[in-house]
């Protein structure tokens, strides 16, 4: 038969208060196994307190060819950032 296990992406929260971060990927036949494998592969040194596993094929990723239209228009909107606004030097708490 020789069917390969699908690829899973593993997200780990290092400690409460922090977001889950992408740690890497691994192979597993089902979600339960992906969870167990993630625990064994990515938290051997107490790296985590919570794990998410997502089968890689379920992730929709943006295409770098569209980076221009997706991300560049944000570059000239300096007025979204606090440093855009001039204030007198002696003003405090702002």
């Amino acid at each position: 038969m020789n069917k390969n296990w699908p690829l899973w992406e593993i997200f780990v929260r290092s400690k409460n208060g922090l977001e889950h971060r992408h740690f890497g990927s691994l192979r597993a036949a089902d979600a339960e196994m992906a969870m167990n494998n993630a625990r064994d592969v990515y938290t051997r040194r107490s790296e985590g307190v919570s794990i998410w596993v997502v089968e890689s094929k379920n992730i929709t990723a943006s295409n770098p060819e569209h980076n221009g239209e997706l991300f560049e228009p944000a570059a000239d909107k300096a007025y979204r950032h606090p440093t855009f606004y001039d204030l007198p030097d002696d003003i405090e708490h702002m």
């Binding site: 296990w5 691994l26 192979r27 064994d40 592969v41 051997r44």
Partner: peptide, 11 residues
Amino acid sequence: PTLETDIALTN
């Protein structure tokens, strides 16, 4: 049978 099971059994 896989690297993943090697790692698990070693744990």
